[in-house]
Design a protein around this nucleic acid. Sequence first.
DNA 1: ATGAATATGTAGCAATGCTACGTATCGATT
DNA 2: AATCGATACGTAGCATTGCTACATATTCAT
Lengths: 111, 111
Amino acid sequence: MRAEALKGHLDGLLLASLEAGPLHGYAVIEVLRDGSSGHFDLPTGTVYPALRRLEGAGLVQSGWSVVSGRRRRTYELTPAGRRALNDQRTLWDEFSGAVSALLRRGAEAAT
Amino acid sequence: MRAEALKGHLDGLLLASLEAGPLHGYAVIEVLRDGSSGHFDLPTGTVYPALRRLEGAGLVQSGWSVVSGRRRRTYELTPAGRRALNDQRTLWDEFSGAVSALLRRGAEAAT
DNA sequence: ATGAATATGTAGCAATGCTACGTATCGATT
DNA sequence: AATCGATACGTAGCATTGCTACATATTCAT
């Protein structure tokens, strides 16, 4: 997967991964990897800062817990986050539809 | 359309717009706008530098012409550009498939 | 005891598209 | 003739974003 391909679409994926219930960062990475047949194997340096960014934007909220001696920061969607996820889905459909159409047709000669 | 959405996908669209035959920059903008139902109305500050970038990468080549008093820099795909366009199409299918799957399913809870 | 897996985090970088300019010609309107 | 919109090219600087590389710590299997 090209490195830059994800730009601008990561937030939607993160929100989607939290839709079914709260997760901690490491688990988000696994969900994204497994749910994409290995296409998205994101480094922690990508995911952790992004989750904090979403928290800053009020789309998720986090809390600490400790599970078998390991501390976890668990993230959860806020109502605004659910709305944003909806928006992202709509935006993605428009965007991907437009790109697919353009890539497919090549384009008829103009002038 | 979100501003960052396009990041990493513009090159493929530009190459696709040139597939049917040579075009100048302004015409590329029109093809992208009309071929996407207005979703992609790209500013010249996006398209012109990107075309030069593609030329630097050897994927397109350009030449000047003058049409009714206006100078035009016309771009054309190179063989490498056609190969790159093919690659972009494959990459896009993988990428968009993975994103669509993740956005759709939300994701089953993982401990 | 050693290393892999689990778990979190940051500093700094590279890439990319956009904003806001600037220049110039042509055709239509006033 | 003057003005304005469309056509046509371009650049400097910015903001955002994801990645690389690193640092830390615990648990579990070898």
